[in-house]
């Protein structure tokens, strides 16, 4: 097939990371995750946007995959890791059937198609529901039976109960920053998870991360990290969210491509985080103080 060479596509439960993602642990999150995974305790990641939640889950899936491979599949072929990572970005129109699956018409009959959650449950991978509060309430109830001792997924439309495969683990992420009262997790949902809190890394680590990811030298990375730190001080003063590590990395990448630091920060940090003019000016002042 000629199309295959044009783009790479994966079947959702077969997506595995081939290379170790870059991740710098900030606290004990790696140990926590490993411990939780051993007991198959579902996890919830709380933290502002762009602080590395997704990267962390990728990192863990790779890391745990390696371990699984070592223990169980040492004699098998070169498939490498085998802890699939199913990422589902939640949006406000995401419904239960989007997750579980639905009937489709094919010819004269209906055909059942598994949703991503069902596939993850079957395949026994990590199912990562990103920004879960955005999803509709019915979806969050749907995951309840998966998260306690039952570890089952009821598929009511087919009248089935699906038992989760051995390796399955549910991980949610949510950002408490912009939660409105409406978009909060129900207690019955929250109390089924082990929570790991994320925050932006301290300046030294962030320097290291930015330097690695963006390919800029330590000095620039330090300055970017400092910018991040200063801008985050403005949270609660009109800024909904501080400048994320991701934004700082973007800025760093622009810089390493030859954009002047001030300009790079302006477009990737300042204008990305606020539309408020006076706040933009304040941040411009910070940028112009930090960068020459």
């Amino acid at each position: 097939m000629t199309t295959q060479s044009l783009y790479k596509s994966f079947i959702i439960e077969e997506y595995q990371l081939q290379e170790e993602p870059y991740y710098v642990p900030i606290a004990d999150e790696v140990e926590l995750f490993e411990a939780a995974y051993k007991s198959r305790l579902p996890l919830i990641f709380k933290g502002p946007t762009g602080c590395g939640k997704t990267r962390f889950v990728e990192y863990m899936s790779y890391k745990l995959g390696i371990e699984l491979t070592k223990v169980k599949k040492s004699d098998s072929d070169d498939s490498g890791v085998n802890l699939p990572l199913v990422t589902i970005a939640c949006h406000e129109d995401l419904t239960g059937s989007d997750l579980v699956g639905r009937y489709l018409l094919e010819g004269d009959q209906t055909v059942w198609l598994d949703g991503p959650l069902t596939r993850a449950v079957k395949a026994g991978g990590i199912c990562y529901l990103d920004e879960v509060v955005e999803a509709r309430k019915d979806t969050t109830v749907l995951i309840h039976p998966l998260t306690d001792h039952r570890r089952i997924l009821p598929i009511e439309k087919r009248g089935e109960l699906l038992e989760a495969a051995e390796g399955f683990l549910l991980v949610l992420s949510y950002n408490p920053g912009y939660q409105s009262a409406l978009k909060d997790l129900k207690h019955s949902t929250r109390q089924r998870f082990v929570s790991i809190e994320f925050d932006y890394p301290p300046i030294e680590l962030e320097t290291q991360i930015v330097a690695h990811e963006a390919g800029v030298d330590e000095d620039v990375a330090y300055q970017l990290a400092k910018l991040g730190e200063k801008v985050r001080n403005l949270k609660e003063h009109g800024l909904g969210e501080g400048a994320s590590t991701r934004l700082l990395i973007y800025a760093g990448k622009l810089i390493s491509e030859g954009i002047t630091p001030r300009r790079a920060c302006q477009v990737s940090v300042n204008w990305a985080i606020t539309d408020d003019e006076s706040l933009q000016q304040s941040i411009t002042e910070i940028i112009s103080s930090i960068f020459e």
Partner: peptide
């Protein structure tokens, strides 16, 4: 004032 106040807050973190 609004701009500089924010600037100062950002720098001092207070």
């Amino acid at each position: 004032k609004p701009v500089m106040e924010m600037y100062c807050r950002a720098l001092a973190g207070a």
